[in-house]
Amino acid sequence: MKMIDLTQLITASMPVYPGTEPPHLTVASTYETDGFRETLLSFFSHTGTHMDAPFHLFGERTKLNEMPAAQFVGKALVIPCMQYGAGEEIGMEALAPVRQLADEADFLLFHTGWSRYWGKAEYFGDYPVPSQEVCRYALESGKKGLGFDTIGIDPIADEGLTRHRLLLSQRDIVIIENLTNLDKIGEGLFLFAALPLKYENADGAPVRAVAMLEEE
């Protein structure tokens, strides 16, 4: 089985959502003083490649730590979206060529190519976003989650987080943001896992996202 890591590295200088404090990775114990190394990690729950829970926006909805582990693993399909430019909506036409496979998938991962701007100003600009019709399709077809290689699924200017609210208000679905390496997967269904940190009252969490492909 071939494993492809879809996770951005957490560093002190990494891109974070505008207004969010960057991570702090402080060496708390050293080989010289303590005989071992230990790092104090301090970062927001929506740092790097991460997952949003319904509890992120709705206090009465489900927390990540309340979801079964099966929520985070399943069949996935990459949706090619490189044809969409800055600020454009990804509509159902993007799914049309692969609709049968999309219907079978538990996760849809949208490859916009925006991860090429990781660490650059363009990453926080106008990136492609899914249409509300695509979000409703995900809900109606019982998807476990949607994933994106962008910093969000709503435009930076949308302070109301319209698409987040549409998805997270209705059922237990997760949103995965800041994915990378989606170009390395290819066509067809594959096994996908994005396992979040399990902590109390989890509104979101960094994940280690991986694609597991059958060797040819």
Rank of each mutant, 00 (worst) to 15 (best):
M1N: 09
K2I: 02
I4W: 07
L6A: 03
T7V: 06
L9K: 13
Y17D: 10
P18Y: 11
T20M: 08
E21H: 03
P22H: 02
P22V: 00
P23C: 03
T26I: 14
T26V: 12
V27L: 06
T30D: 06
G35Q: 00
R37G: 01
T39I: 12
L41M: 15
L41W: 15
S42M: 00
F44W: 10
F44L: 07
T49Y: 04
H50K: 01
D52A: 07
A53P: 10
P54R: 03
P54Q: 06
H56D: 09
L57C: 01
G59S: 07
R61T: 01
T62D: 03
M67T: 01
A69S: 12
A70D: 14
A70H: 10
F72K: 08
G74V: 05
A76Q: 05
V78E: 01
P80R: 05
C81S: 10
M82V: 00
G85F: 09
G85C: 03
G85E: 09
E88P: 06
I90K: 03
G91H: 06
G91L: 02
M92N: 04
A94P: 01
L95Q: 10
R99M: 14
L101D: 08
S115W: 11
S115A: 13
G119D: 11
E122S: 11
Y127E: 15
V129N: 04
Q132V: 11
E133M: 02
V134H: 08
C135S: 10
R136T: 03
Y137V: 08
Y137T: 06
A138I: 01
A138K: 02
G142R: 12
K143P: 06
G145N: 02
L146S: 07
G147E: 06
D149C: 07
T150R: 12
I151S: 14
G152N: 15
I153R: 07
D154M: 15
P155S: 06
A157Y: 15
D158P: 08
G160D: 13
L161W: 05
T162F: 14
S169C: 04
Q170D: 05
R171A: 06
I173K: 07
I175G: 02
I176E: 05
I176H: 07
N178L: 12
L179S: 04
T180N: 10
D183F: 00
D183N: 05
K184V: 01
G186C: 08
G186L: 11
E187S: 13
L189R: 11
F192E: 04
A193G: 14
D203T: 13
G204Q: 11
G204C: 14
A205L: 04
V207Q: 05
R208P: 00
V210P: 01
L213I: 06
E215M: 13
